[in-house]
């Protein structure tokens, strides 16, 4: 079922030349429009594959773009627009997931991995240094070496 749906979507997607925002959607206030574009690029076109509503030509994307602009015109903040869309369509609509219990690992992974890497390197270097000290010549050996070299 999902496969068939996906395939249908694929056909649907490729059947439509990709145009996003149409002139009739553009808000008169350039500041508001810029905010609308920024928000749109962070919202997923729910029927597309990994496209933002700003890039997509799907009907639904257009509806969402109009919805975003309507909300902005009525004075909502960016955050309020996102919240409203999440309340209607779920977290799935956000292309940049919010930090939550379930996305903790996603957001934390880069820092965590970098930390593990640095610690691993530190550990490795420390053990290397330990070994290096162990193989360094003792005073006695140095003296002998000097003696040999003088011969």
């Amino acid at each position: 079922m999902i496969r068939r749906l996906a395939f249908a979507l694929f056909l649907f997607l490729s059947a439509l030349p990709a145009h996003a925002v149409n002139p009739d959607e553009v808000l008169a206030d350039p500041k508001l429009e810029a905010r609308a574009r920024e928000i749109s690029s962070h919202l997923r076109c729910l029927v597309c594959q990994n496209q933002s509503i700003d890039d997509s030509n799907a009907e639904l994307a257009r509806d969402l773009r109009l919805l975003v602009r309507e909300r902005l015109k009525s004075g909502a903040s960016d955050q309020q627009v996102y919240d409203y869309l999440v309340s209607r369509y779920g977290e799935f609509v956000l292309l940049k997931p919010r930090l939550s219990e379930h996305t903790l690992f996603l957001w934390g992974a880069p820092a965590l991995l970098a930390l593990i890497g640095v610690m691993g390197l530190g550990f490795f270097a420390a053990s290397r240094n330990g070994r290096r000290k162990a193989v360094a010549l003792t005073e006695e050996e140095k003296a002998r070496l000097q003696a040999i070299l003088k011969e």
Binding site: S41, H42, R44, N50, S52, G90, E91, F92, V93, L94, L95, K96, P97, H102, T103, F105, L106, A109, P110, L113
Partner: peptide, 28 residues
């Protein structure tokens, strides 16, 4: 590499584990 890998597979893994659907897209 790991970040790209985790970001790419995360939605799939999360959905199969918890049924929750999220998107990880360009802004992330």
């Amino acid at each position: 590499t790991a970040t790209v890998l985790i970001g790419t597979l995360y939605p799939m893994a999360l959905e199969s584990l918890t049924g929750e659907k999220i998107s990880v897209g360009a802004p992330f």
